[in-house]
């Protein structure tokens, strides 16, 4: 009953076992690549744009606005990683409506990998924004007594991000499988619809929290948008 996708071997690729997590990550990656290929195929800044380009522009403009509201900083700095995390998690959570698809986000190794990427991106953006000393100053922020707490929260905040996504997706998947063993008809469908809602919210929250942590140490001068 326990859904552990890391030990579930799908097939062997030249004697290398490929588990369900990696396999469904590849599916999500190929879907994303197909999306971006379709969106950038007839790229134009004319009035007449293709439908896919309009869709992608909507997502990018929306996320740019969100980043600007939360970080008060140049959104282009965080857009790449934020949009990448958001789209990957969103697509993998949305694909759960396809039966037999095992979402890679319901495995702890995927979410820990995401959190590690964010964990490395936090000092990078902080040093870029405020310099090395400005980054170190964050740890003794109210007073040097808080140093162990700040160090601990640096690890705990990113780790809890991974656990949150994993817990949400795992609970959705397991609840569906338990419910299917009781009531195989109709009723699991409503839970799947609820899973779509929580999946999209989780994708939004993961991307937004990553942006909040990355823009925690902001630049000394406020960002002014040039038109």
């Amino acid at each position: 009953m326990f859904e552990n996708y890391d030990t579930l071997i799908i097939f062997h690729f030249f004697d290398i076992p490929i588990n369900a997590t990696i396999f469904s990550s590849w599916i999500v990656m190929s879907v994303l690549m197909l999306f971006s290929f379709l969106a950038t195929r007839f790229l134009s800044d004319d009035i007449q744009t293709s439908r896919w380009q309009t869709l992608m522009e909507m997502v990018v403009i929306w996320l740019r606005k969100e980043i600007k509201e939360t970080s008060n900083d140049n959104p282009a700095k965080y857009l790449g990683l934020g949009l990448g995390l958001f789209m990957f998690i969103l697509v993998s959570n949305f694909l759960t409506i396809i039966p037999w698809f095992r979402p890679p986000t319901a495995s702890l190794s995927t979410t820990i990998a995401f959190a590690l990427v964010v964990f490395c991106a936090i000092p990078y953006h902080a040093i870029q924004n405020a310099g090395f000393l400005g980054y170190l100053k964050k740890f003794i922020d109210p007073s040097p007594i808080m140093l162990p707490m700040n160090l601990f929260s640096e690890f705990a905040s990113t780790f809890s991000m991974a656990l949150r996504l994993y817990g949400n997706m795992l609970s959705g998947v397991m609840f569906a499988s338990i419910l299917t063993s009781f009531v195989p008809l109709i009723l699991p469908l409503s839970m799947q619809v609820l899973g779509l809602l929580t999946g999209s919210i989780q994708a939004y929250i993961f991307a937004l929290l990553a942006i909040v942590y990355m823009s925690n140490v902001g630049p000394s001068l406020p960002y002014v948008e040039e038109n």
């Binding site: 326990f2 949150r164 994993y166 817990g167 795992l170 609970s171 989780q202 939004y204 909040v212």
Partner: peptide, 28 residues
């Protein structure tokens, strides 16, 4: 609304820890 979602997710984390612990006691 956007702040509410983030806050809700943070508050929800404690319940998710409880869920993971109960999964642990069940299956592992």
């Amino acid at each position: 609304r956007s702040t509410l979602f983030v806050t809700m997710a943070m508050v929800e984390t404690t319940a998710l820890y409880a869920l993971l612990i109960s999964f642990l006691t069940f299956y592992a």
